[in-house]
Amino acid sequence: MTTTDRFTDARRLPLLVRTPTQNVVRELLGATDGRTGVLRVVGDPGGEFRVRSGQIVAVHSAGAPGVFELLARPGRALTGDAELRAVTMMAAVDGAFAIAAGSIDTCFWAEISNGAPTEVAGVEPGWLLAETERRLRALSPAKMSPHRNRLLLTELGETRLATAAAGPRQEILRQVDGQRSCRDIAFLLCRSLYAVTVEVSRLLAENFLLVPPPDFDRAGDDALPRDGTGMRALPRRRRGASGINDLLPLRPSSIRTRRKSEGMQ
């Protein structure tokens, strides 16, 4: 049994096999017969899977930093082709995670262009889908979208930012302003979306960060609680603006369904 064969059973990918996400899964698994082309995923943020001879050679999405952004990280210096291939692989896996963690409307095939400079040797669709499933499952307890949910420092977070030593967490906290999402911070720091989202989920669990409601006005929030929790007092919400849809576990859903839900609020 090959690696791909182990994931052709839909029951092994419960977070991914949902309409219309299952269409993307079906098309990628079906490409293992030697297909070449670009599977374009329409959604928010959407993206594309570049496939050569049944192998995925690149994944691009507006929801995650690509190879060039990752290479632009301060202090990073390439040591050779092996590291470039590793960064390219990281970008491909992160792009797949970004697509799956957003909303998916539909997908279609297009011809592949030649001469793309950032491609891996090729990975099996089954392996990439399984890795994407693993990442979604690992972050689902956080009930936070890396694309839509904005982040806000708590009182504890502000204290940590002012007193803790420099490090990856401090980099993230420094970028939090009540308006930025994990995606925004990932691009600012030239770090992978998944790595930033994992760290943010930990900071949320430790009460250094919180996810404010969608109508949060950063400039109008000056009150801090005095109960020792370190959590900021949130502004009063408008009727119907609870933001409950933004706090549900990560799951792909159609744009049409999401827009209908927003229109009912």
Score class of each variant (00 low, 15 high):
N149D: 06
A138W: 02
S181P: 05
M89N: 10
D94C: 07
L193I: 14
I112R: 15
L151Y: 04
L210F: 13
L193N: 00
R135G: 09
V200G: 00
V93T: 11
S192M: 07
G157Y: 05
A164K: 08
A77V: 13
S145A: 05
V123M: 14
A130Y: 06
E133N: 04
A91F: 04
A116F: 15
I185V: 07
T118L: 14
L203Q: 01
G126T: 05
R160S: 14
G167A: 08
L156V: 08
A92L: 14
C107P: 06
R73P: 09
A92V: 09
R191S: 03
L156W: 07
A164M: 08
F187C: 08
G126A: 09
E124Y: 07
N149F: 04
A164D: 15
A98R: 00
A91M: 00
P146T: 07
G126R: 00
R73N: 07
A205F: 09
Q170S: 13
L203F: 08
A195M: 11
R202F: 12
S103Y: 04
R169E: 11
A205P: 11
G102R: 09
R134K: 09
L151M: 05
D94K: 00
I185P: 01
T118Y: 15
A138G: 12
L161E: 06
G102D: 02
A121F: 10
V93I: 15
L71F: 10
V198I: 12
L153S: 02
T154C: 01
R174F: 03
V123I: 15
I112Q: 14
S140D: 07
V198N: 02
R137K: 11
S113K: 13
V67P: 03
L71I: 09
A205H: 11
A166C: 13
G178C: 08
L210N: 01
A98E: 03
P74N: 12
S145M: 07
F68S: 11
L203H: 00
S103D: 10
L173E: 04
E69F: 07
A164Q: 12
S145Q: 06
T106G: 10
R134N: 10
T163Q: 14
E119R: 15
Q175P: 02
L203M: 14
V198F: 03
H147L: 05
E133T: 01
L173Y: 01
A205N: 08
V93P: 00
R202M: 14
L204Y: 12
T106Q: 06
A101Y: 05
L78R: 10
L203Y: 03
M90N: 11
L129N: 04
